[in-house]
Amino acid sequence: MFYNTDLTSRLMLGTARYPSPAVLKQAIVASGAEVITVSLRREGAQGTAFRELLAESGCRLLPNTAGCYSAREAVTTAQMARELLGTSWIKLEVIGDPDTLQPDPFGLVEAARILCAEGFEVFPYTTEDIVVGERLIEAGCKVLMPWGAPIGTGQGLRNIEGLRSMRAHFSDVPLVIDAGIGAPSQAAMAMEMGFDAVLLNTAVANALDPVAMAAAFARAVEAGRQAHVAGLMPRRDMATPSTPVFGMAELA
């Protein structure tokens, strides 16, 4: 599914801003996630204690380059991540705007090209822009992570039609909705639309009960996936009675 790694769970969890590592650990268990992200830019080499706690969860760590504003910063952070964590997976974020945390597609493609050439397995955090997606694939990415909405906003899938087009265009590329998911219903919708996974953080970390919310998301993601596989009925403009009108008995 992702760089020759098959996962059972299609929910990936961010690890920032939980009340405590203990709560985070319980939330990871409740979510069933097998991949968790970890940020390095700010914590640096001396964030070992927290990362060890994360490693104890048994999940695969997906280090990210959160907080990087240029390709160069992101590349350096990725290299540090590989060195510290011994994984070539990297969730590549190059932020273009500090207010919306919108990805900078130019820096992103540049960094992706460098990192793929260095043997990294890159998970780029991008927009639903198809051309940017093409460039990332060209650069060597085998996964794309389009945003649902800006990080931490909980607005869900802000451009549903754009995401639908992206899904249709990249039918063979694993696509993960990353960022902006605020409610399980939104995660379910992403899965119903055929996305391969969702990655979220704030919606769980900032819930009043993160562990219960993690469980809620796990079910939603599973339900959405199951619905997608089962084949959703098409939307229709007119009502279609489930029982035919003609040929009914007249009981008068």
Binding site: E43, G44, A45, G47, T48, A49, F50
Partner: peptide, 12 residues
């Protein structure tokens, strides 16, 4: 910050 770095405050 989840870090044991004890150096001075950062600009950020």
């Amino acid at each position: 910050v989840e870090s044991a770095r004890s150096g001075p405050v950062t600009a950020r």
